[in-house]
Amino acid sequence: MVAGKILIILSDAHSFEVHKSDDTTSQEESGFFLSELAKPLIKLLDAQYAVTFASPNGKGPNIDPLSESTMLAFLGNWWQKNKENKLIDEMRLTNNLASPRPFASISNAELNTFDGVFIPGGHAPLTDLGNNPELGRILLHFHNQKKPTALICHGPYALLSTKYAPESPGFAYKGYNLTSWSDAEESLVETLKGGTIDKVESTLRGEGAVMITGTGQKLGSITVDREVVSGANPLAADALGTQFVEMLKGTQ
């Protein structure tokens, strides 16, 4: 028996911008971060939730190459990496991960059939989620209906889209306690890439969110405020998935 339906939001982008000191811009390969999608997805499927994938224009999503590094992303745990890769392959074959629903194809009436929404990270959301009016419409539905909303790493950047939704009153999550990929963590990536990258933490703070950061968050602690659960990085993926399922069950 299906426990409910979850909408999973992904980016169409396969890269993100790095702004160089000489005023040029490079495109760096990205996509969704493997474990940030797979670990919560496992929790949802184990709890018998059906999932539907959606993206701005329905393009097949890319996997962030760094997130498939056995040594860097999985600390040598080949078994876990293989498990998560197999799950993604299965979702491409048996679900609609290979061809997500375009945002505009999901009507307001259909949104009523979903119990929650989840947005994983990877740098790709910086490219096409933060200013998407259709995503803003979708997220405002879950916000206004107080339906569980889970976000991790760069995923919270998508919340900015609520500013651009039709007839939007502005950023919907002003005053919310949120955790995301921090500016300090991004600065390390900037050093590696040799340029500046749009920031999640400070941008959300500038819109009125209360950003919760610190050692606990960097080590996998999650932040819960009203209908939203958020996490900073891949270390939070397991806890985020568990909390999201508990929140979903609590609303049914």
Rank of each mutant, 00 (worst) to 15 (best):
L151V: 15
F114M: 12
L93E: 09
G155M: 08
A73Q: 07
K174S: 15
D46N: 10
G206D: 06
N144S: 11
F244Y: 15
R205Q: 14
V117M: 08
S230V: 13
N95Y: 00
G208S: 09
N77L: 04
V189Y: 04
K174R: 14
S35V: 10
T215C: 01
G122S: 13
I8V: 15
F118Q: 10
A50H: 05
L10K: 05
D23R: 15
P40Y: 04
T203C: 07
G214L: 02
I119F: 03
G216E: 01
V117N: 04
K199Q: 12
G122L: 15
E84P: 01
L44S: 07
L7P: 10
S161V: 04
G214N: 05
I6F: 04
Y157S: 07
L111Y: 10
T223R: 05
V18Q: 01
D115R: 11
L159E: 03
K193T: 13
E190C: 03
M71H: 09
S35G: 12
S99R: 11
E186G: 09
L75E: 12
F142V: 08
L135V: 01
T162D: 06
T24D: 09
E68G: 06
T242Y: 00
G60D: 10
E28M: 13
G136M: 01
F16D: 05
D46I: 05
G76P: 07
I6D: 01
A47K: 04
W79V: 15
G175Y: 02
L188P: 00
N62E: 14
D89W: 01
H154S: 13
A50G: 10
T52M: 10
H141P: 12
D12F: 01
V229N: 05
E134V: 01
L75G: 06
Q252P: 02
N144L: 11
A236P: 07
E201D: 13
L139N: 06
V245S: 06
S187A: 11
N77R: 11
K59M: 13
G231Q: 01
R205V: 06
K81A: 08
L37Y: 06
S180A: 15
H14N: 14
L66Y: 05
R226W: 03
G175A: 09
T223H: 07
L37P: 02
T223V: 14
M211Y: 09
A209W: 00
I119L: 04
K59H: 07
Q243E: 15
A124W: 04
